[in-house]
Every structure is written in structure tokens, then in C-alpha cells.
Computed example of a mutant assay.
Amino acid sequence: MAHLAAADLLVTVVVMPLDAAWNVTVQWYGGEAACRALMFLKLAAMYASAFVTVVIALDRHDAIVCPLGARGAARRSRAMLGAAWGMSAVLALPQVGG
């Protein structure tokens, strides 16, 4: 749940203000590097929020379907969370390149 809160906080702090500023100004004054960095964060935050929600759903599914198989659940959850954040970063990388 902490990872979902972090991802949603990124959406709240990065995505929403960027979209609001874009709707008001329709022009970017921060330079190309800042634009690329913020677009990377915007996309990564949106991907992370979705992927972490999927990880939580998979974890809950596993807990319901196999309630006695909790031996490797913590390690599996950490691996899935790492994959979710990693995929978010990788899928947002095209925003950095030119």
C-alpha cells in the first residue's frame, strides 16, 4: 500500500500541476531539459500507479486462491513491486530521448 500511495502522490504532485499549468499557459517556459524530465516523471508516475495496482491485485488473488502458500509471498511481492517500478521507468524513457 505504501508503494501505491507513493505512486499516487507522484501523480498528485507531478501530473496534475503539469496538466493544470499546460491548460492555463499552453506554452512551456522551462527549457527542453526540464520539459523532458517532467514529461518522464509524468509518464512514469502514471505507469507506476497502474502497475502497483496490478501488483496489489495479483497479491490479493494469490492470498485468496492459495492462503497457505505464504512462504515466499513477501519476496514475490518485492520482486513484483520492483518490476512495476522498473517497467514504469523503462516505458517512460522515450520521453527523455530525442
Rank of each mutant, 00 (worst) to 15 (best):
L18R: 01
W85P: 01
D19N: 14
K42P: 04
A73W: 04
Q27F: 07
A83R: 11
A70R: 15
M87H: 00
M1I: 13
L41F: 05
L4D: 09
R76Y: 01
V26Y: 12
M80G: 06
A57C: 05
A21F: 05
L38D: 08
R78C: 04
P67N: 09
G98K: 13
S88C: 08
L81R: 10
G31D: 15
F51M: 12
P94L: 00
W22V: 13
F51K: 09
M80H: 14
V54T: 06
R71S: 09
L10D: 07
S88N: 02
V55Q: 11
L38E: 14
A83Q: 09
R78W: 07
R78S: 08
N23A: 15
A20R: 14
A7M: 04
L4V: 06
V24T: 13
G72K: 00
W22M: 15
A5F: 11
L68D: 15
R60E: 06
D8Q: 13
W22N: 14
F51R: 14
A73P: 05
G72V: 01
V13Y: 09
R78K: 06
D59C: 00
Q95P: 00
A2Q: 08
A34H: 03
I64E: 13
T12I: 07
M80L: 14
M80S: 06
G86E: 06
V55Y: 10
G82I: 01
L81Q: 10
R71W: 03
G72A: 02
I64S: 13
W85D: 01
A2Y: 10
V65K: 11
G72L: 05
F51N: 15
T12G: 06
H3Q: 15
Q95E: 12
I56A: 09
C35A: 14
V11T: 10
K42I: 04
L58I: 10
V52Q: 11
A84M: 05
W85I: 04
A44D: 13
K42H: 14
M80I: 01
A21R: 07
E32K: 02
A7C: 07
A5W: 12
G72P: 00
A70M: 12
F51A: 12
L4W: 07
G97N: 03
L18T: 00
G97M: 01
L43R: 03
A5D: 10
R60W: 07
T12W: 06
D62M: 06
A33L: 15
S77A: 10
S49F: 01
A6V: 14
L81P: 03
F51G: 02
A92E: 11
C35T: 03
T53D: 04
L91K: 11
H3D: 15
H3R: 14
T53E: 05
L93N: 10
F40N: 03
L41W: 08
D19F: 06
T25L: 12
I64D: 08
L38W: 13
T12E: 09
P17R: 00
P67E: 11
G31I: 13
M87F: 05
V11K: 11
A63D: 08
R78Y: 09
A37H: 01
H3L: 15
D8G: 06
A45N: 11
E32A: 10
A79T: 03
F40D: 07
T25E: 08
M39D: 12
G30P: 01
